[in-house]
Each structure stands twice: as C-alpha cells, then as structure tokens.
C-alpha cells in the first residue's frame, strides 16, 4: 500500500513544517485526498512520492498561519515550538541560536510559493523537476522561486552572497 511506503517520510516533513501536533491530521488528510484523486495519479504513471509531496504541501498550506506563527516565535525567542519535543543538541551544534532566529524570521516572511519550493528541496529532498511536478508549475518557476527564496534567506543572514553557491547542486537527473 502506498501509505506504508511513503507515510513515514511525509509525516516527518509535516512535523518539520508544522510540529507533531498537526502532523497526524495533515498526513491523514493528505492520504485521504490522494486516495480520492488516485485515478489521476494512476493514469500519469509517475513516481508517487513527488505527487504525494504536492498533496501534503496543499494541506500544509491550510495551516500556513500556524506555520508562520511558529517561525516568528522562534525568531523572537530563539525557542522553536516545533522542535521542543526533540533533542536540540543537533541543531545547537549546527547553528548558533542567533543564526536560527534569522533563518526563522526569513522563513516567516517568504511567500507561500517560495517557501514551498525551498522546503520541498531542502527538507523533502526533491529535485527541481520533482518539485515542479509536485507543485504543478514549470521548472523555470521552481528555479526562480528558489533563487528568490535563497536571496531573502541570505539577506536575512547578513548579506552572504548567494551567487557563490552553485545553483544546481540539487539537480541529480
């Protein structure tokens, strides 16, 4: 069953965006929608995961106020309500709180489409093409949204020039 193959990965993605309390509802809603529109997927014969990421992205979108509220809380206090239940040791090692606060502030301010693209690629591990398929937008839109999002994040971090980063390090087709 599709659920058993992909639910764990999609659940973790939902937890990262919205926190553990919403994740179960979001996952259930996403798979229900997937079941109801399964004919569309079967006829396309594409890999299922990007399609499912697209559906769960739409469901997460219903909670975007709650999502932004959590980023803003993290930006303000340095405490991330989403990861309160998890071991923070890893994150603390990865980046100082000040950096995380800036990242969170940037995420809170991104447009919905920019955030969806950035996080599908960064957290969902999708390629540009899979992201385009998930969101049903042209691949050029994925590229432009991603570079806009990264420019905003880099700006929030204090003017690191994003151009020095290779734009296509996520492309593995």
């Amino acid at each position: 069953m599709l659920f058993d193959r992909h639910a764990a990965v999609l659940h973790r993605y939902a937890v990262r965006r919205l926190g553990p309390e919403h994740a179960e509802d979001v996952l259930a809603e996403a798979f229900t929608r997937a079941f109801e529109t399964r004919h569309r997927y079967e006829s396309a014969r594409a890999e299922a995961l990007p399609w499912l990421y697209g559906i769960i992205t739409n469901v997460i979108g219903l909670h975007r106020r709650a999502e932004a509220r959590a980023y803003r809380a993290m930006a303000r206090t340095g405490e991330d309500p989403v990861t309160a239940a998890f071991d923070e040791g890893v994150a603390a090692r990865v980046s100082a709180s000040a950096t995380r606060q800036r990242l969170a502030a940037a995420l809170a301010k991104l447009g919905r489409g920019e955030r969806d693209v950035l996080l599908l690629i960064a957290w969902g591990d999708l390629t540009y093409e899979e992201t385009a398929r998930a969101l049903r937008v042209p691949i050029g839109t994925v590229r432009s949204r991603l570079s806009r999002a990264r420019r905003k994040v880099a700006h929030a971090l204090g003017g690191v020039n994003p151009v020095e980063m290779s734009e296509d390090h996520r492309e593995r087709l």
Partner: peptide
C-alpha cells in the same frame, strides 16, 4: 551556505516512528 543552514534547520526532528502513523 544559506541553503545548508535551512536544510539543517529542524533536522533534529527524528525519523517518524511507525506508531506516529
């Protein structure tokens, strides 16, 4: 870089246990 920082943000969220599903 900025992308890697985003990638690591909330990476402490563990793999989802079967129970959570």
């Amino acid at each position: 870089n900025d992308f890697d920082l985003i990638k690591h943000l909330r990476s402490e969220v563990g793999e989802s246990e079967p129970d959570a599903l």
